[in-house]
Amino acid sequence: MTAPSIVLTSLTKRFGSFTALDRLDLKLEGGKCVGFLGPNGAGKTTALKLLTDMIFPTEGECFLNGISVQRERMRALEAAGVLIESPEVYPSLSPTQALEMVADLRGMSRTEREERIPAVLAEVKMSEWAHVKVGKFSKGMKQRINIAAALVHDPEIVVLDEPATGLDPRGMSEVRSIVRDLKKHDRLIFMSSHILAEVTDVCDEVALINHGKLLFYDTLENVTAKFSAGHSSVDASFARPVPERTVADRLAAESDLLKVEQLDPRRYRLQFKGGPAVQARLLRKLSDEALELVSFTESKSALEEVYLSQIEKGD
């Protein structure tokens, strides 16, 4: 089996005089999760709709596992599970019936359906409502069914357009868990999102677009390292309030440390140059019984800083 792949070549979409997507080239390959970032109107959903043949390109082409979506829609989409724009299920169908419809259209056997449908319904925590009409569901519950529909045939490629839309915090956390689980099974996941913490949490790589143009595509580590000028930052949390002076004293001899910023009396953000070796040294210096360090994690705002700086540059 070859590695799953998504390829967009010179993908352009114009709506009248407005260019939503401008010669976008992107090649994703292998089992991983790629976050697709960009502000509202950047062209994310347009690109995903072109990738799934919901709209037609002005120029360019999309390929799923090497098969042209524009020329061989049916064969190309066989490998993909798709969730675009929070669709609605026919209201008089139950989740089980809706998933049976998807499974039926995809030629899944009865045995496979009986195995997969309860499993994906359990995965999205909808087993209890498996036989209730979808018309009575909340937006979040419908979105869970949409996610289940994208996964029911165990696709190699999963295309998700803001999957956490309409979900409560618990639902968002569950979506992240589902995506992490998919990665374990060598799936290629291409996911647009506005939630940078979600992307940082589950994605291996990120692609950022603005005004229909690709700004960058790289691994999360490379992106934060490259665009933060080789600087990294970590957040250190303590069990009790620690004076800023104490932290500064502990790290005074550390020449790679650039900045210590107090986030609150118990939390500090340390900005430093260098890689994991410097990070490990900082950790050693802070981890003694007197300070009661309880966590030491890469700053979640690294991607946010890169995102904002690149978007501002583009604007």
Binding site: T52, D53, M54, R73, M74, R75, A76, L77, E78, A80, G81, V82, L83, I84, E85, S86, P87, E88, V89, Y90, A98, V102, L105, R106, N146, A149, A150
Partner: peptide, 14 residues
């Protein structure tokens, strides 16, 4: 209008 088409058109169907 009801967005049910978005559910169907994600499937390999003409």
């Amino acid at each position: 209008q009801n967005r049910t088409g978005y559910f169907l058109m994600g499937q390999p169907i003409r």
